[in-house]
Structure formats: C-alpha cells, structure tokens
C-alpha cells in the first residue's frame, strides 16, 4: 500500500504529511501532526469530539480522509486561541465551569466558534440544536449552553 503525500494548511501553518489512503483526517491530525486536541469518541460521526473546520465548514474529522484535504484550510482547537489570547468561547467555558472531564470540550469549542461566526446572536434553542452532535456526558449541557450564549453576548459587545 503506497502512502499519499498531502500539502495543506493547519491552523494557519503550511504542513505536509504522508498518509494511508484509508486514514482519516482525525488520525492524521493526531498521529502524524501530533495535534491531539481533536478526540476520537466514536469514529462514526456520532459524538462530535473530533470537530474541526475544513475550509471554514464545521466537520467531523473522523468522517474526512486525510487524502481529501490537499490544499485546504483546517482549524483545530489548537488554532482557536492561545493561553494569553483565548477565544471568548474558551474563556466563557472556563468562567462558567462548563467542563468537567473536558474530553468533549475541544469539539464544543470548535463547533461553538463556527456557530457564532455565522450567527452572532443565536437563541438558546439554536445553540442546543447546533451542538446536538457534540455529546457531553458530564455536564447535562446547562453550563455549556450558558457559556456559549454569554460568549456570543460578549462578542456582540454586550455585557463585556
């Protein structure tokens, strides 16, 4: 089996890697690029822990092949914010204690950021439906939803 050579962009940096034809983007990120922020909770697109954006579009990286991403722009949780410049979604998740074990958190952050880019003023119901594919078993979602809503408010310049 011959490997495929791919050049692409991850979190703003040009990267290249060799992958097997059946290797998923999630495997590539984790095993080849050492970006372990995206998690594999199911491998079948049911849990959302592996969420990344691909050319600005929210996807489950377990349902994308590494071979498919040549020339793309990929963003993972590692690219969302830095320790001294957290994205509001990250900061509000921390402030609201909206994570317990934290395994779903990277996926929630990537998904919530994507939501707020296209809908800066979502209702509670819109946040809940957008995040329906991001399973969380610890929190019962309450604090996550509150954190996303208050991050949105801050980004709109309210309650800053």
């Amino acid at each position: 089996m011959s490997k495929i050579h791919i050049t692409t962009q991850v979190n703003g940096d040009a990267v290249e890697f060799l992958c097997e034809p059946d290797e998923t983007l999630l495997d590539v990120l984790r095993d080849r690029l050492n970006l372990t922020g995206a998690k594999e909770g199911c491998g079948t697109g049911d849990c959302g822990a592996c969420s990344v954006t691909l050319n600005g579009r929210l996807v489950a990286s377990c349902l994308v092949l590494g071979a498919e991403v040549a020339g793309s722009e990929i963003e993972t949780v590692e690219g969302v914010g830095t320790a001294d410049a957290l994205h509001p979604v990250q900061q509000h998740l921390l402030d609201h204690a909206a994570l317990q074990c934290g395994i779903c958190t990277p996926g929630i952050i990537v998904a919530a950021k994507a939501l707020l880019l296209q809908n800066p003023n979502p209702s509670e119901e819109e946040v809940r439906y957008w995040l329906a594919g991001n399973l969380c078993r610890c929190t019962g979602y309450d604090k996550i939803i509150r954190a996303v809503l208050s991050a949105a408010a801050e980004m709109r310049g309210e309650n800053a």
């Binding site: 697109g45 049911d46 959302g48 969420s51 691909l54 579009r57 929210l58 996807v59 489950a60 349902l63 994308v64 998904a111 994507a114 939501l115 957008w130 995040l131 329906a132 594919g133 991001n134």
Partner: peptide, 9 residues
Amino acid sequence: IGSTQVQGR
C-alpha cells in the same frame, strides 16, 4: 441528516 458536522459533508 446527522449533526451540524455531518451536514458540512
């Protein structure tokens, strides 16, 4: 069909 993530594909 599927989640927001699945909708992207």
